[in-house]
Structure formats: C-alpha cells, structure tokens
Design a protein around this nucleic acid. Structure first.
Lengths: 334, 334
DNA sequence: CTGTTAGCGCATTCAC
DNA sequence: GTGAATGCGCTAACAG
C-alpha cells in the first residue's frame, strides 16, 4: 500500500539504515549514495511515516495547548501566536479547550499519564501541585502563559504594573475620581489578571494620595452587557467618576456605551481606559494598555521547544512589557 | 520507565494479548481474568501508549482542521463546534492555519502524503482536483464546511437562500432602495459566501420587480473600517438607499457607524441587516441572517467520523438552514 | 561509510 | 479462553 523505507532502500540498492540516515541528515553517508537514495525517494514519492518515527524516537512531536474558553478574543490572539510559531517547527499543535473544572482535571490527568504530547502550554491556568508532580515524573515540560507558579517556566506580563500604568495615565490627566471595572472573581477559573490590575490601580492611587473609594470599585460578569450596567451604575452615583479603568477592553466598550446612553461624551465627559489592546481597540480609538498577546504565544513556544530539546533545568521566566497606548478615549479632566 | 502492557501482563500473570483484549473490550476473556487484569492496570496506573496503538492499528486517531485565518470570528465559532464534537471522541484535533495560498498547498500536499491524519475538515476552501485525487488515493476522507465540490462530502448553508431571505425581509418592510455591501472578491481565497449572498439579493430584487442598481452594489476589504467608508459613500449618493444588506455582521456594524456619523438613525433613517449572527449581533440588536456556525462544526465532525469508520461511499451532504433574526436595526421604510 | 539487527508498545493472527 | 509469535515503519546501536 503505502511506500515505506524498505521500498526506498530496495529501489536505491541500500540498507534501510542508510535511507534513515539520509532522511535525518546524518552526515556519515557518501554523497553518491545520498543522491541515489534521494532519487529513489523522489521517484517513489516517499514520505516517512510520522507515527512510526514517533514510536521509535519515543517522542510525540506534538505540543498540546490547554486553553480555557478559547473563543475569547484574548485567547484567540495568544493561540494565533502559538500557531504561528509552531507552524515553522516539526511539531503538531493539538488543542484542548476547557470550559469546566472537571474538563480541566480530566485533561491534566490524561496528558500527564498518556504519552500524548511532548510538552504543554497552559494558558491563564495554574495546575495543582500533584498535577505538576505528575507532569514532572512523566518528563513533560510545562510552560504557563499569563499565569505564575514558582516552579514552572512561564511567559507573563506584569498586570500589577499594567494597572499602575493605566491609573497613572489617568492621574496624569488630572483625574482623581477614578473607578475600576473588572470581571467578578467568583468565576471557577478566577483568572489572575484582573485582580492584579486592581492591585496596580489601588497602589497607584495610594501613591498619588488619592483615597480608594469602594463605590468606585465594581465587578460583574465578563462581557459588554454586564459592563454597560456597571457603567450606568457608576455614572448614576451622586459623585460619579470622571474616569474609568476597565480591566479589559471588552468591558471598556461596555462602559463607553453606558456613557453614551446617559448623554455623556467620551472623553470630554468621561475618560475610559481599557486593558488588552484587542482588535477592536484600535478601531474604536480606545486608549488602553497594550498586552503582547500574540507575542506571548510565540515566546511560550520558544521556551517550550527549548525545554523539550534540552534536559530539564531551572524554570525559564519571560516577562513581556506592557505599555499604555494613548488614543482618543482619555482626556484631561474637564 | 513508563509502564507498558508487558508489565501489566506480568503483574496479572497473563499474556499481553489478554491484556490487550481487556483494554479493547474483547468479549472472549473470562470474567475472572478480566478482573485480575483490571486490578493490575489499576495498581500500576497503566494507560496504553497511544502512539504504539496508532502504529499497530494503522490509524492516527487524529483529525486535521484546515482553516484560513482562524482568528476571524466566523471561523472561531466553527472551530468551537468542531472542538466540542471532537472532545467527546477518541480523536485529537490538530489545527492547521492558512494565511497564504502557498501554505494552503503545502498543507494539502503534506497531509495527503504523510500519514498524519485520519480525516480532514476543510473550512471555506475547495481543494483542487489533483489534491482531491491524492487524498482519495491516501484513503483520507475529506469534509468541506461552507464550501462545495460535487465529489466531496460537505456541510453547507445555502447562502443564495440567505441572501434572498435578507432581501425579502427588507422588501417586506417596504424598502425598494436596497444596497448590498460585501467584501471585495480580489482576495486570493475568494470565499464563496458573499458572492452567493449577492446572487440571492439580486434574484430577490428581480422577483420583486426592483431593478438592480450598480451604484448600490459596493465591495471593499473585509472589516469595519472599510465598511464604514462604503457606508458613507452609499449614504452620500444623490438617491441614497433606505436599507442596506451587508454580507457579514462585521460590515453591517461598519455601515451602522457610517449612518450614525452622518446623523442618520438606525432603523428610522436607515435599515441595516447583517449576515452571520456573530456574537456581537445579539448584543448590538442587529437584525441579521443566522448562520449555524457552531452547529456546522459539530455536523462536520459527525460526517467525518462516519466517513472514517465506514468504507468510502457516496458523498454525504448536509445542508443547514438559515433564517432571519429580526431585531432592532430594520424597520418599515419611513 | 554501510548493512544487519534489535527494539519502540501494541494489536492480532494462529495454535493450544 | 488464552499465550506465543509476528509485524506496524522507523531509529539507533552494533558490527563490519
């Protein structure tokens, strides 16, 4: 049926080992026989069976990506970076989407026991200690993206810093009544970023001598609709904020809609800064904190491949910078 | 190192064949030995090595998904359906993203020759005849999603019908000056849907006795920004349209923005209907034609798995229905 | 430099 | 019912 290494060997009049050597670029083959083998390969239209190779080498040539809710724009963009970096490698990308804690645990167990991936990228999730131990024992390197565990390699951005920068930006514009809008943290996955943004926010307020007002600190479901409601609530306060820092662009958009509905112009009546710099941000002229999403995917792949190639060593830590992208939704306090 | 079937066999005091039988649910094993084997498996924490199984069975237990620009929301949603359906199966999902014709051809060649996938889902792309022949020869079933080739199984929606429905909706509201906004078709991938939408549009106009006006037919780059410009151009016409059918929700949003900028209210001054029913559509209260994106992914997986299990046969064709979702952006002609 | 051989871990005849 | 033996296609010692 399919043409195998043996067919090529016969055709070229050599042993299968020689064919294997040619395929794998082993230098100890005479130029002459190499040519003969290459010709045979060409004529027979041969390509090595990857599965046999995998069994033989004991490697799967596969990288797994564990991602919660991969359809969320942040994750899509990270995935894009991962896909991009992996496309140029010999590794296949297999996607594991997680929508419930049960799924998460199932995949963790599955992937650490079965011989399914050579390495795993984990987005915005932190495995438990036993799970980490299992991967370690199975000798499967892990790289966290946008999540932190002291023993694991990771690619992160400093969200506390991001929160500081956003807040600093508003303070520099003269604002003092600055609200924070973020996703609620009763989510089963409880992503760390928003909480860290809040830390940066409160730290920077503190540094500026601005008291934290709890009525300016609102949380709700992720998504525009919810953010719009929160925005309306904020703007209905007796002393409404003059600026809002939203822990995601999606929520920033919701807040802007609330402002518009209430007859408030942005940025004249209300400054809004988002977080993430998602696709729509530029288009909507939204001031935001740029997060290197695509780049984080690329970097994570680089780190993981290094870990796969080299013997295990110290965790590799890459921290990518964030910066404010000042566009049209923030302005000096009126 | 890792525990193998041999370890289990030894532990249970049986041959490896028996262990294999137990694993694969072969009935010809006595209940007693089955229990013994299961215990051994449990104690040793054994899981079969999938790669060895793949080599032995000659199947990869892998499904490939070929998708152009997978970050576009339409594709993300289809991918979600695919992922969802595949998660419950024994198959891995490996993602191949395509951004250039060269990449497309490379993957087609690669996947048809190498033993990498048991089947392939192809989104919005049609392979060439030689490529189809190659897959056929390699015995790798193909399922097209949102694309048509007479010899291939596929899951589609009737975009001509979709275009008719959208146009009919506007006509029923009394509109006669109806414009069509779509992506330009000088794209190297030239997705078929927009063109078919246009066919439905022009067919329905014809049926209603409304002449097609070429100044009402505008095309431009995919994306909001471009659509906004087209919208402005349309609304600046001496005799501007009273309604716009956009071949994608993204473009519909751009048109709505153009209307707002020019002081026209939607739907009072301008009716807008989109296409796709993407996530934002409901939120923005956009009237649109619902496309079963998620469902198309699920169905495609079902078809593909059937094709993998069963001997090749007639192409399986699934056509999913579309329908207008009437929301707040269309109204009777003023 | 090159061919022979021995696995990789499992499924699967084929005898018993 | 069950075990021993063979092979899936390839890589990697090991001899020559």
């Amino acid at each position: 049926m399919a043409v195998t290494i043996r067919d090529v060997a016969k055709r070229a009049g050599v042993g299968i080992a020689t064919v294997s050597r040619v395929i794998n670029g082993n230098p100890s083959v005479s130029e002459e026989t190499r040519q003969r083998v290459l010709e045979a390969i060409e004529e027979l239209n041969y390509t090595p069976n990857p599965i046999a190779r995998r069994l033989s080498t004991g490697r799967t040539w596969t990288v797994g990506v564990l991602v919660p809710f991969f359809t969320l724009p942040e994750f899509v963009k990270r995935l894009q970076g991962i896909q991009h970096a992996l496309a140029e490698s010999a590794y296949d990308l297999v996607l594991f989407n997680i929508e419930t804690p049960a799924q998460r645990d199932k995949y963790f167990l599955d992937l650490s026991r079965n011989n399914r991936v050579d390495g795993l990228l984990i987005l915005s999730l932190v495995p438990g200690e036993e799970q980490i131990a299992a991967f370690d024992e199975a000798n499967i390197p892990l790289v966290l993206v946008d999540a932190v565990h002291p023993d694991l390699s990771r690619v992160t951005v400093n969200h506390v810093r991001g929160g500081e920068l956003a807040t600093e930006h508003l303070i520099a514009l003269g604002h003092r009544r600055i609200a924070f809008v973020g996703p609620s943290d009763d989510d089963p996955f409880r992503f760390a970023a928003p909480q860290q943004c809040f830390q940066g926010y409160s730290r920077m307020l503190d540094a500026a001598g601005i008291p934290l007002r709890k009525e300016y600190h609102v949380r709700g479901a992720y998504g525009r609709e919810s953010a719009r409601k929160m925005g309306r609530a904020l703007l209905s306060l007796d002393e409404p904020p003059t600026a809002v820092f939203a822990a995601s662009d999606t929520q920033a958009i919701g807040v802007m809609e609330a402002a518009r509905e209430m007859g408030l112009r942005v940025p004249e009546g209300l400054s809004v800064i988002g977080y993430g710099d998602l696709r729509d941000a530029e288009y909507l002229n939204l001031t935001t904190v740029h997060q290197p999403l695509f780049e984080s995917g690329v970097e994570a792949v680089n780190v993981l491949l290094a870990l796969i190639e080299d013997p295990p060593r110290e965790p590799i830590v890459v921290e990518l910078p964030v910066h404010v992208v000042s566009r049209g939704t923030t302005a000096p306090r009126g």
